[in-house]
């Protein structure tokens, strides 16, 4: 594992037509680690993720997979990374889970019909994420927890080098969050994972590296011990927090109301 696969962001300005979200953003996202972009709503987390697959205009340099992002063609971006946020499918145009997985690999094969390799990968990912029993179900029929797992599987089935997950924990109950966190941690070996979330509990239980964002500015970055030591999570959310430790290991964060 070398550092050549780190993502380097050196951007003067980035954002949308009438809304510059980032100014002077300089960042290195370490490879083969789980990095969490943590911040309140509207801090620019999703924009940062979208920037990595050319969905946000920027002035400056972004290096991904040792190449300048601007010079990577769309088809190569499809092979390189997977982004998963919310997917919404019109009910009447429902797809089944295994079809969605095969479609997720459609950027990887030429021609209209998938190869045996694509089917093997889809099967393997369904087994890895524990969704084999859902293969023949329509996406629109799944519960939030099931859908999140399927969405993760749709990202993994591409076997991407970089996995970008936008709030993979949203609308989930506690058990489903734990399961998703476990699944993500299992993928860390061969993949650089970047997660955007506003839930510090999910973040501390999943991530290796933290980037704390507020109003388009990086407040802090580092390991969990480093950011807690500097009280950065409190600064980002503007709230008092209590840290819960079990045998010296941080297991939870509780916001103090009132």
């Amino acid at each position: 594992m070398n550092r050549l696969n780190d993502i380097l962001i050196d951007v003067e300005e980035a954002g949308y037509r009438n809304n510059i979200v980032f100014r002077d953003l300089h960042l290195i996202i370490p490879s083969y680690k789980i990095t969490v972009i943590l911040g309140p709503n509207g801090s620019g987390k999703t924009t940062l993720l979208r920037m990595l697959f050319k969905r946000v205009k920027y002035r400056g340099t972004i290096v991904i997979d040792f190449k300048e992002l601007a010079k990577i063609r769309g088809s190569n971006i499809a092979r390189l990374l997977a982004y998963m946020g919310d997917i919404s499918l019109p009910e009447m145009m429902g797809l089944k889970v295994f079809e969605a997985l095969l479609i997720s690999r459609s950027g990887l094969y030429t021609g209209l019909i998938e190869k045996d390799e694509d089917i093997r990968e889809a099967e393997a990912v369904m087994a890895e994420t524990g969704i084999k029993h859902l293969a023949d179900r329509r996406l629109s029929e799944l519960s939030s927890g099931e859908l999140r797992k399927v969405v993760l599987a749709m990202a993994l089935v591409k076997r991407p080098k970089y996995l970008l997950l936008d709030e993979p924990d949203s609308h989930l109950d506690i058990l489903s969050r734990i399961e998703i966190s476990r699944l993500i941690k299992r993928c860390r070996k061969n993949t650089t994972i970047i997660i955007a979330t506003h839930d510090p509990v999910f973040a501390v239980n999943t991530a290796d590296y933290f980037i704390l964002l507020r109003d388009g500015k990086i407040i802090d970055k580092g390991t969990i011990e480093e950011v807690i030591g500097r009280k950065s999570i409190e600064k980002v959310f503007g709230a008092k927090l209590k840290y819960v430790y079990d045998k010296g290991k941080l297991i939870g964060i509780i916001p103090i109301y009132g």
């Binding site: 998963m84 946020g85 997917i87």
Partner: peptide, 9 residues
Amino acid sequence: LMGDEYAAQ
């Protein structure tokens, strides 16, 4: 079918 962001990636 699965959304604009999905198509973009």
